[in-house]
Simulated scan of single mutants.
Amino acid sequence: MNETYSAFAGFAQTWGLLYFMILFGIVLAYALWPKNREKFDEASQIPLRED
């Protein structure tokens, strides 16, 4: 049983790290994409608006 756990833990750590790195790259690309700049600039001004 201990071998199974160690194998699964190693698999999860390796592929989990790869998965989250890819996900982070996608989110970063989305946030920095020039087409989305206006949307994020507008959203950043929401706390400063007075209704």
Results as ranks from 00 to 15, higher is better:
residue 36 N to R: 02
residue 16 G to S: 07
residue 25 G to E: 03
residue 31 A to S: 13
residue 14 T to G: 01
residue 34 P to V: 06
residue 22 I to T: 15
residue 7 A to N: 13
residue 35 K to R: 03
residue 30 Y to E: 06
residue 12 A to N: 10
residue 17 L to Q: 07
residue 19 Y to F: 11
residue 7 A to D: 05
residue 9 A to P: 00
residue 50 E to C: 04
residue 30 Y to F: 12
residue 48 L to T: 12
residue 46 I to A: 12
residue 8 F to L: 15
residue 5 Y to D: 06
residue 35 K to Y: 02
residue 39 K to V: 14
residue 23 L to Y: 11
residue 4 T to E: 08
residue 27 V to E: 01
residue 33 W to Y: 05
residue 24 F to T: 02
residue 51 D to C: 04
residue 7 A to P: 00
residue 13 Q to G: 01
residue 11 F to G: 04
residue 1 M to H: 10
residue 40 F to K: 04
residue 11 F to W: 14
residue 29 A to C: 06
residue 10 G to V: 11
residue 40 F to H: 09
residue 6 S to M: 15
residue 38 E to K: 04
residue 18 L to Y: 04
residue 20 F to G: 02
residue 9 A to H: 09
residue 21 M to T: 15
residue 38 E to M: 02
residue 16 G to T: 09
residue 40 F to S: 05
residue 19 Y to D: 06
residue 43 A to I: 12
residue 26 I to M: 04
residue 15 W to N: 11
residue 7 A to L: 13
residue 34 P to Y: 05
residue 17 L to E: 11
residue 45 Q to A: 10
residue 18 L to G: 02
residue 9 A to Y: 11
residue 40 F to N: 05
residue 4 T to P: 00
residue 32 L to T: 13
residue 51 D to H: 07
residue 27 V to I: 07
residue 8 F to Q: 15
residue 20 F to R: 03
residue 16 G to P: 00
residue 33 W to Q: 01
residue 22 I to N: 04
residue 47 P to L: 09
residue 23 L to S: 08
residue 6 S to H: 11
residue 21 M to D: 10
residue 34 P to G: 07
residue 15 W to K: 06
residue 34 P to C: 07
residue 20 F to V: 05
